[in-house]
């Protein structure tokens, strides 16, 4: 009896599948496959592993596409201001370091999260303020001086900071315990490095502008920091009293943005003349807290 073409192809497919399965499941061939996979893993293990700290990051510094704009100190302007918080002050959140004895031993007093820090006079700390618009395509000299991020007391110091695209970032571990440092960028390459106690500082760069890059330690999940990467040197972070200062600006009209990790962003326009100092204040409202 002749089989229908559809049925025949179904039977053939079934046969092929069964044969394939039998081939894979053949103990000898499976052992060969397993050995190959194991070899590949071993080879990988020999070549991979922990990156030696102290090595420079693989990310290349950005190449300037035009002449570097020199800042004339005779005409350089300054933008200052204060960041305020409006509304009921959030209750400080205590960090539980009891899970890690080495961290807990480093603190005699309770440690609080730095996500919304409102000091006296409603001053809001840890707000990244930078020139968002107004500099056009001007290129500025990239500082060779590294910005230092320290892991101390199982906290990041500083909590929020800025760096120029291509400027070195030096990471220290001053703690008697192991950390991993893991920035989670959207426009730059992600990396995750382990840092044992007393290890040689790690140096990395972020070649592309990005507001902001969260930094985590997955060993101690309360450890968080934020890096603002900008092409120019015109940025600042609000201090304990909420004030900030951006110096050395060429005269012009600028859009200044203030960024906060939980309260979002706010922008204002400002025009500064030669040697002029202008004040730009920002106020963040309690209701704007981002989950």
């Amino acid at each position: 009896m002749k089989m229908e073409p559809g049925k025949a192809s179904l039977v053939n497919t079934h046969k092929i599948l069964m044969k394939g399965l039998e081939t894979i499941m053949n103990p000898r061939k499976f052992a060969l496959l397993f050995a190959t996979l194991t070899m590949m893993l071993i080879l990988y293990a020999c070549g991979g592993g922990e990156q030696k700290t102290g090595e420079t990051g693989e990310q290349k510094a950005p190449e300037t596409t035009g002449p570097v704009t020199q800042i004339d100190p005779a005409t350089a302007a300054t933008v200052t201001g204060k960041i305020s918080y409006e509304g009921e002050k959030p209750k400080p959140i205590q960090i539980r370091m009891d899970a890690e004895a080495a961290c807990a031993a480093l603190h005699k007093e309770p440690v609080y999260a730095q996500q919304v820090v409102v000091n006296g006079n409603n001053a809001l700390q840890y707000v990244f303020v930078y020139v968002k618009e107004g500099l056009g395509d001007k290129n500025f000299e990239i500082s060779k001086e590294p910005v230092v991020l320290d892991q101390k007391g199982c906290m990041y110091h500083p909590h929020v900071f800025g760096v120029q695209a291509g400027q070195p970032l030096k990471v220290l571990n001053s703690d008697p315990t192991t950390h991993n440092i893991h920035p989670v960028p959207a426009n730059n390459r992600e990396w995750n490095k382990s840092m044992s106690p007393g290890v040689t500082p790690l140096e990395q760069t972020f070649p592309r502008e990005e507001i902001m890059i969260p930094v985590k330690c997955n060993v101690h999940p309360w450890m968080k920091s934020y890096i603002g990467v900008v092409k120019h040197p015109f940025f600042a972070v609000s201090k304990e009293d909420g004030t900030f200062e951006i110096k050395g600006l060429p005269p012009g009209e600028y859009t200044i943005e203030a960024w906060h990790e939980k309260l979002g962003t706010s922008t204002q326009k400002v025009t500064v003349g030669p040697k002029e100092t202008k004040s730009v204040d920002f106020t963040f409202k309690a209701a704007a807290v981002i989950s």
Binding site: Y44, A45, E50, A99, A102, T178, N192, K193, S196
Partner: peptide, 17 residues
């Protein structure tokens, strides 16, 4: 951060995460 080894060894310091 590394795999298949952990912190370049078979037994890293068992702290935190």
């Amino acid at each position: 951060p590394d795999w298949p080894l952990s912190y370049g060894s078979l037994m890293p310091p068992m702290v935190g995460g």
